[in-house]
Design a protein around this nucleic acid. Structure first.
Lengths: 354, 354
DNA sequence: TTGTAAGCGTTATCAT
DNA sequence: ATGATAACGCTTACAA
């Protein structure tokens, strides 16, 4: 039975030597047997395995790492844990590394460069095999530098250095997708209310929206893009302003679910029915917002968990000697709820010419 | 200059031997000098420090840990990263351990006991010095068991084993506080709409509310507690049902901010002004909900970040040989916004008798 | 197939 | 004050 330092009498941990002794072999043989090396007599292996089992042997990862020269750990350096975008990315990464028997060190720099350096040092000193830098906003960030002893992957916020590998969300494609969906719902008079113009993502999403509209020979209604802030109250205010300017609209693409929620409220206060009169699509697929609004909000999902997984896989590849470079943009998908209503589903019909 | 395995030619990492060689001392002396031991000649120490600096020496934490028998790491075992309650706790813990030069391994069991066991093994194999188990809901959970080789602190979800140390939020006190605040706002006809009756926290908060009311010689309006689910839509539905039953109420205590938000919406749809006619207080202080509702929502804050810090401190103490046991309940505080309006501030007046 | 022995990078003990 | 030397627990040549 394993003993406890927590409450019972503390006792030496079980080591490979204990296992070897019990199985009556050398530590070298015990090591080989446990690590599935081929040059071990099946009978011997069985004895070793049984001994390890009986003693509940668990190899000391530090010792193993020390001799192997790799720790089997990676550092997750986030800029802002509070931001709700980091979380799904962390989860995706955690998931992907789990399969890999790689453990994660979590560090939160709280948006402070000093603290980031501090954590970076700590992580390197812990001999992490690689780093994932998770940004808080979709805009680019300073590189950690080209001279690190381990590979780095930037997730969500791309690195400014093109020689680094970054995995980000394709906001232009996201914007396209949103408008595409509204067009598929039969809407043509589409307005776009979005967040902080200081964010690259605002402009990217707007560009995707405009591009898709242009392809359909259309333009944004309401005299261009309404930039503001990523809040519900801006969504409300912008909608009021928009309606003062024109009521000739049949859909709104909101740059975030929070904004969309404000849009929904004011549209309905103003007597417009959603989705009958005006359809609304958001961005983020933030369940508690999108799922609980009235009506439930259709939205664009950035698939951040997949982004985290992808970042983990890329890092694993880089650690294995296959580094990447440049910025990889991952796609979004539409999650349809009740604020948009696609026209009759064409999937079963033969493709139309053109 | 430090060289890179990432993009430049890889080269051996700098070790203590390199530093010692450059400073022309033995590794033993170099170690003492760098670790601030007293028995080192100031001149020698300066030479060593300079050498370490020049080589950007960073000690290998695995080697150090192997030799010291402690890793300087702890495991953070969460049941559900998605849940928004884990996050602030993680941040608090991260913060507290940061001061301590302790690094955190992050593991998410996703509510699965098998996965939890798997992670537990991995963490022990990594020689963590202790564990924090962060629950997803405030109800108690199975203990990890009494026979672990390292101390454990349970945060948010207490362990069912009273011999374990758990740090949780005092929901009874939170409920009291909410009602206390409404009373201080001059309200006496208070209804309580809360979430899932399967959660202990629902009952605890309700009990706190009732206790405080009883002390004031009052009872809940609306025929007792309205249990349901932790959603906005339940908040809306419950409010409609409540208003059908009675309009003789001047305040609502909602069991969560999401519920409160639904309450706010329906009260106002029904022509009641908030806070003039009915005041509303929520629970959680979930900024994006409470801060963006109309009017902005007063609410009870569980101070989860402080809880995380406290858990970290307790674990540090336990690792140092001062284990604790039992359940520690931490207090809440009211965050006042616009959905409640306290009467004239009495703080500057002399205390009233009684 | 098995065992011996030399590391991995650090700290601690104990001479000097 | 300084320096050999032996751990710490594991892997891996290399020898037997």
């Amino acid at each position: 039975m394993r003993v406890s330092a927590g409450r019972d009498q503390p006792s030496r941990a079980v080591t490979l030597r204990d296992v070897a002794r019990l199985a009556e072999v050398s530590t070298a043989t015990a090591s080989k047997a446990l690590n599935g090396r081929p040059d071990v007599n099946p009978g011997t292996r069985a004895r070793v395995l049984a001994a390890a089992e009986r003693l509940s042997f668990s190899p000391n990862a530090m010792a193993r790492g020390l001799s192997a020269g790799r720790s089997g750990t990676v550092g997750l350096l986030t800029s802002d844990l509070e931001g709700r975008f980091s979380l799904p990315i962390l989860m995706g990464a955690e998931d992907a590394f789990g399969a890999d028997r790689t453990s994660l060190f979590l560090c939160d720099a709280r948006g402070d460069a000093i603290r980031e350096q501090h954590h970076l040092r700590a992580l390197l000193s812990r001999q992490v095999d690689g780093l994932i830098v998770v940004g808080a906003r979709p805009d680019s960030r300073r590189s950690l530098g080209p001279n690190l002893p381990v590979p780095v992957v930037y997730a969500y916020s791309p690195s400014q250095d093109a020689a680094d590998l970054s995995i980000v969300c394709d906001n232009v494609a996201g914007g396209r997708l949103a408008v595409d969906h509204l067009l598929a719902c039969g809407r043509t008079r589409i307005a776009h209310i979005t967040g902080d113009p200081g964010y690259g993502a605002s402009h990217d999403r707007a560009r995707g929206a405009r591009d898709r509209l242009a392809e359909a020979g259309l333009e944004l209604v309401g005299d261009g893009v309404w930039f503001g802030s990523w809040t519900e109250s801006w969504g409300r205010r912008a909608t009021r302003l928009l309606l003062e300017q024109t009521r000739e609209l049949d859909a709104v693409f909101a740059g975030s679910d929070q904004i969309a929620r404000g849009v929904l409220d004011v549209l309905q206060e103003e007597g417009l029915r959603v989705p009958e009169d005006v359809q609304v699509i958001g961005f983020d697929n933030w369940e508690v917002i999108a799922g609980e609004s009235r009506p439930a909000l259709s939205t664009v999902d950035m698939q951040l968990e997949a982004l985290g997984r992808r970042a983990a896989q890329s890092l694993t590849a880089a650690i294995a000697g296959n580094p990447g470079a440049g910025t990889v943009e991952l796609g979004c998908r539409v999650v349809q709820r009740d604020s948009t209503t696609p026209r009759g589903n064409d999937r079963d019909l033969p493709p139309r010419p053109g």
